[in-house]
């Protein structure tokens, strides 16, 4: 717990919190751009258009990519001037440090999701949408996107601990994220590709019977499986990393 508090403190003081603002910017911009003219004459809840348009880009590219930025930022302090040595000389286990850093990333993503939600709502109000806000569906999408990021954040934390350079883990992130533009179109491969899960989980057109927009089996095997794999691999790597 104290490891977590110290991670949070370091992050807060690093002046990187501004990056959180990118998310509402996306939500507001995306919500405005994907205007309403597209759906004229069709009788559905007007909120669906901005939600649809903004979620597409947000879930497909922004969320996976920005998670990597957070992972890089929480390791930045230690990569400068031998910070790893100092941190690990303190009475904390390496496991605690890893978990604390991971928790900070996931906390940031959660805050980002909420800001995004708020911005999307604001964008809708600006356009004077009068229909009731479909909150039950939107929660699924916002929370689902957060859950889908769990494995990606674990991989990015691992990569960020490995490389001193900020851009190197980002390269890994890009290599895996870009193909999902093609993968999401495929019914055969889409469900199995971890990097397309944030999109699937935020895609408001999915089936609404389950808790999330994807079936439980897919959630547990693809998201859960890749999470266990990446988290353990990163954890073990960090245990053995020489500082």
């Amino acid at each position: 717990m104290r490891a977590l508090a110290s991670e949070w403190y370091k992050f807060r003081k690093s002046g990187s919190l501004w990056a959180l603002l990118a998310a509402p910017l996306m939500g507001f911009g995306g919500g405005l751009i994907s205007g309403l003219d597209m759906l004229e004459g069709i009788n559905i809840n007007q909120w669906y258009t901005p939600l649809f348009g903004a979620n597409l880009v947000y879930g497909l590219l922004f969320l996976p990519l920005i998670t990597g930025v957070w992972a890089g930022l929480v390791c930045r302090y230690e990569h400068q001037a031998g910070g790893w040595k100092q941190l690990l000389a303190a009475p904390v286990t390496r496991g605690q440090v890893f978990v604390a850093k991971y928790a900070v990333i996931m906390l940031l993503v959660l805050v980002m999701q909420l800001l995004y939600l708020a911005a999307l709502y604001a964008a809708g109000r600006v356009q004077e949408i009068t229909d009731p806000f479909p909150l039950d569906i939107v929660w699924k999408s916002i929370f689902g996107g957060w859950v889908a990021v769990f494995p990606l954040a674990a991989l990015q934390l691992w990569m960020s601990m490995m490389w001193k350079s900020f851009a190197a883990p980002f390269v890994v992130n890009v290599i895996f994220t870009l193909p999902s533009i093609l993968v999401v179109n495929s019914e055969r491969f889409g469900p199995y590709y971890p990097w397309s899960q944030p999109f699937s989980m935020m895609y408001i057109g999915g089936s609404t019977d389950d808790v999330f927009f994807i079936p439980w089996e897919q959630l547990l095997t693809v998201v859960g499986g890749s999470f266990v794999l990446f988290f353990l691999a990163g954890y073990i790597y960090f245990q053995r990393k020489s500082v």
């Binding site: 990187s16 990118a22 930025v69 890089g72």
Partner: peptide, 8 residues
């Protein structure tokens, strides 16, 4: 100085 900026 913080390369998080350009990446974002």
């Amino acid at each position: 100085e913080n390369q998080g900026w350009p990446i974002t």
